[in-house]
């Protein structure tokens, strides 16, 4: 249980690698795999500020699934000449179901990020409720640095360190070094948790 709670932190936050709101009419497909769970999300950006989606996740250790409709809102964006920052509200509601029980499920949280072409920072929290299946409050922070500044269309590389905190878990704090690669409309992240878990995510924009 403790392990699951600790690892579950990776699931929902990982849907946020690529910004959850893209451009009006844009589709995004995300696949998330980590030590605790497997997930997939498809979302559609309605306006510059709103995106709707559907999300499925399977928590391997506790053996329950969650299906949810998601709503992501860009609350504020700061565009500067050499940098950009964003504040998002992310949420979802649906059902969580295991072999025996089905419970209502919901989650919500805020994400704030800042980046220029060399550095990236992010903080995110998430409140998750799934009845008897699970419930948690988690926090995540990321720092990233790009070893080079690629031109438009090049393969871009980021080295990142992710810290996760869950006061309700036995292992309250965790660090995950990871590499983010993207080219064109495809983004991949791969990392190795210092506690032994593997992280792999794929995002594709259409």
């Amino acid at each position: 249980m403790r392990f699951l709670l600790f690892c579950a932190i990776f699931l929902l936050p990982l849907t946020a690698h690529a910004r959850p709101v893209s451009w009006p009419g844009g589709w995004m497909v995300m696949l998330m795999n980590d030590t605790a769970s497997n997930g997939a999300q498809i979302n559609y950006t309605l306006t510059p500020k709103y995106a709707l989606g559907i999300q499925h996740e399977y928590f391997r250790e506790e053996k329950f699934n969650m299906d949810a409709a998601t709503l992501d809102i860009l609350l504020k964006r700061w565009n500067n000449t050499g940098s950009q920052a964003n504040l998002y509200f992310k949420s979802g509601a649906g059902i969580a179901y295991g072999s025996d029980d089905t419970d209502p499920a919901a989650f919500a949280g805020l994400e704030i990020d800042w980046e220029d072409r060399r550095f990236f920072t992010l903080y995110e929290n998430r409140f998750f409720y799934a009845g008897d299946q699970d419930k948690f409050i988690k926090h995540k922070a990321r720092l990233g640095v790009a070893p080079y500044e690629g031109d438009y269309g090049d393969l871009h590389t980021w080295i990142m360190l992710q810290a996760d905190y869950d006061a309700g878990a036995d292992d309250t704090f965790s660090l995950t070094p990871l590499v983010r690669l993207f080219k064109g409309t495809t983004l991949i992240e791969a990392g190795y948790n210092l506690d032994g878990g593997v992280l792999f995510n794929l995002t594709k924009q259409f």
Partner: peptide, 8 residues
């Protein structure tokens, strides 16, 4: 302004 990310 804000154009710092290829992916975006």
């Amino acid at each position: 302004d804000g154009m710092v990310c290829d992916f975006c």
